[in-house]
Simulated assay, not measured.
Amino acid sequence: MFFSVVIPTYNRLPILQKCLRALEFQHLREDTVVTGYEVVVVDDGSTDGTLEWLDSHRQELSKVRSLSQDHLGPAAARNLGVEQAKGDTIIFIDSDLVVTENFLQAHADALVQGQQQLGSDRVFTYGWVINTNNFDNPSSEPYKITDFSAAYFATGNVAIARKWLEEAGLFDTRFQLYGWEDLELGVRLKQLGLKLIKCPAAVGYHWHPPFNLDQIPQMIDREIQRGRMGVLFYQKHPTWDVRMMIQMTWLHRILWGVLSVGGRLNERTMASFLQYLINRGKPQLALEIARIFLNWYNVQGVYAAYADMEKKRYSA
Score class of each variant (00 low, 15 high):
Thr173Asp: 13
Asp55Trp: 10
Trp128Thr: 13
Leu111Ile: 14
Tyr297Cys: 14
Gly73Thr: 11
Ala168Val: 11
Thr100His: 06
Ser56Val: 09
Lys236Cys: 03
Thr100Met: 06
Gln300Gly: 12
Trp296Ala: 09
Ile292Gln: 10
Val203Gln: 15
Val40Gln: 12
Phe153Cys: 03
Ala77His: 04
Lys163Tyr: 03
Thr173Gln: 13
Asp147Glu: 08
Ala76Asn: 02
Gly263Arg: 01
Val302Ser: 06
Leu251Lys: 14
Asn295Thr: 05
Pro209Ile: 00
Thr9Val: 06
Lys144Asp: 13
Ile246Lys: 12
Asn134Glu: 13
Tyr303Pro: 01
Leu13Pro: 03
Ala202Val: 00
Tyr314Glu: 15
Leu97Ala: 10
Val39Lys: 00
Gln84Glu: 15
Trp240Val: 11
Ile278Leu: 07
Leu213Arg: 01
Leu192Thr: 02
Lys63Thr: 13
Leu259His: 10
Ala202Gln: 05
Ile254Lys: 11
Ser56Arg: 15
Phe103Gln: 05
Ser140Val: 10
Leu165Val: 01
Leu170Asn: 07
Trp250Gly: 08
Arg58Gly: 01
Phe233Gln: 04
Arg21Gly: 04
Gln284Gly: 11
Ala76Arg: 11
Phe171Lys: 02
Leu165Thr: 08
Ser120Thr: 15
Cys199Gly: 09
Ile278Arg: 01
Gly156His: 10
Lys163Asn: 05
Ile90Val: 08
Val112His: 07
Tyr37Lys: 01
Leu165Ser: 07
Gly301Gln: 01
Val203Lys: 15
Ser272Arg: 15
Lys86Ala: 14
Gly45Ile: 07
Arg291Ile: 00
Met245Cys: 06
Lys236Leu: 15
Asp88His: 11
Cys19Arg: 07
Tyr306Cys: 02
Ile216Trp: 08
Lys282His: 14
Leu72Asp: 05
Trp128Gln: 13
Arg222Asn: 14
Asn137Val: 13
His71Pro: 08
Thr50Glu: 02
Ser66Pro: 00
Ile130Ala: 05
Ala161Gly: 10
Leu23Ile: 02
